[in-house]
């Protein structure tokens, strides 16, 4: 039996975990300010965070919130934990920044630090590095949040050696920023947790 044991959201510049508010930046400030303030509010200490693009920052913040009260990272071998994420805009947000840096031939200064984020699955890599997770991973691009797609892939992974997973939706497109991460564990944990199914994933995403 697999359960969803923890989840976190970033929506409308509010960071929540398991239904509880962690940080509210909805009333003021820009998106970059929110991303910095929410990082500080979580007491994170990871200087590399500041070098990341918006997509990765959203993923890192949401992951930290989801995993904070969870024992997942110590209860399972890190090479048996998978990461499966998806979004609609791919890395478009950073692609635009890179495009702007190469569009003027007279001021042609492409930034290597920007270019490395012109793939959406880099957010998986950043999470994997920070939390030392070395299991399976996949990033999907779909038109909208697709609980069925994520569930099907998770089921396939759990038929293999995967024992736990970090899963969700991380989207950055201009000022539109959103993240939803949920943790799935293959264990005999109490029935207080939601069983993994499409309805449960959809219900949590829509919270």
């Amino acid at each position: 039996m697999k359960h969803i044991t923890s989840y976190a959201h970033i929506k409308h510049r509010r960071l929540t975990a398991n239904g509880s508010l962690i940080f509210d930046g909805s009333s003021s400030g820009s998106l970059p300010e929110f991303l910095t303030d929410a990082y500080r509010a979580q007491g994170m200490s990871y200087p590399k965070y500041h070098k990341m693009d918006t997509l990765c920052k959203l993923g890192m913040l949401c992951m930290e919130a989801a995993v904070k009260e969870s024992g997942m990272l110590t209860e399972y071998p890190l090479d048996k934990i998978a990461i499966v994420l998806a979004n609609a805009a791919s890395s478009m947000d950073t692609d635009r920044v890179h495009q702007a840096s190469i569009s003027d031939k007279a001021a042609y200064f492409p930034s290597p630090a920007v270019f490395v984020y012109t793939l959406p699955n880099i957010v998986i890599g950043e999470i994997a590095i920070k939390y030392k997770i070395t299991g399976e991973n996949a990033f999907f691009v779909s038109e909208c949040f697709d609980a069925g797609l994520l569930l099907n892939y998770l089921e396939a992974l759990f038929h293999g050696e995967t024992q736990a997973a970090v899963c969700g939706w991380v989207e950055a497109d201009g000022d539109a920023a959103e993240a939803f991460i949920f943790l799935v564990e293959k264990s005999n944990k109490s029935s207080n947790f939601k069983p993994l199914n499409q309805e449960a994933i959809t219900e949590l995403y829509n919270q």
Binding site: P112, A113, V116
Partner: peptide
């Protein structure tokens, strides 16, 4: 400062820019 290889490339860009 604990910089990495991408930072090294950025420093090259900094000198040029």
């Amino acid at each position: 400062l604990g910089l990495d290889s991408i930072d090294a490339l950025e420093l090259i860009v900094l000198l040029e820019k």
